[in-house]
């Protein structure tokens, strides 16, 4: 992907992220990512009905990469079955960790394909997905 376009997508998702702001609704599962990082602090809410991710909301303070990656993740996940989201998660993590992955299922998340070039940003790019791990821990218990 063209580097200028990648930067534009990341910046747009940082400055105008999707679904920022939490809702008061007990049908959402709420998780926090603070223990994954001392500095970024994101609350993420997932609404999952019959195995389908119907909605995700988030709020909090985090760097440009974490915030934008949360927004792009939300775009990618909404409407997907949990099993499909797990497949995206697996391939996204492999991409960030420089392992083999299938770019064809990552869509817009491919904008983070070169994050590995800045190793100190890997954690930032993975942070929103840590919230999904926490949700999976809860629903698969």
């Amino acid at each position: 992907m063209d580097p200028v376009m990648k930067r534009e997508i990341i910046l747009e998702n940082y400055q105008n992220p999707m679904h920022r702001g939490l809702v008061e609704d007990s049908s959402y599962i709420k998780v926090n990512t603070n223990n994954e990082s001392c500095i970024d602090n994101l609350d993420v809410q997932y609404k999952i009905v019959d195995g389908v991710i119907e909605d995700i909301r988030f709020d909090g303070e985090a760097c440009a990469i974490s915030t934008s990656a949360t927004s792009v993740m939300i775009r990618s996940f909404i409407g997907k079955r949990v099993e499909e989201a797990k497949e995206i998660l697996k391939n996204y993590e492999a991409m960030i960790e420089e392992e083999e992955y299938d770019p064809s299922i990552l869509g817009e998340l491919n904008v983070y394909e070169e994050t590995y070039l800045q190793p100190n940003r890997k954690k930032c790019a993975l942070l929103p997905f840590a919230s999904f791990h926490k949700v999976l821990d809860q629903i698969e218990k």
């Binding site: 001392c38 500095i39 303070e61 985090a62 760097c63 440009a64 800045q118 100190n120 940003r121 930032c124």
Partner: peptide, 21 residues
């Protein structure tokens, strides 16, 4: 600007500062 982004920006110029609490 989030403090960590500022620190990463300065790192680009080999300036070491700390961001966080």
């Amino acid at each position: 600007v989030f403090s960590q982004d500022t620190a990463l920006y300065l790192n680009h110029y080999h300036i070491c500062v700390r961001a966080g609490n």
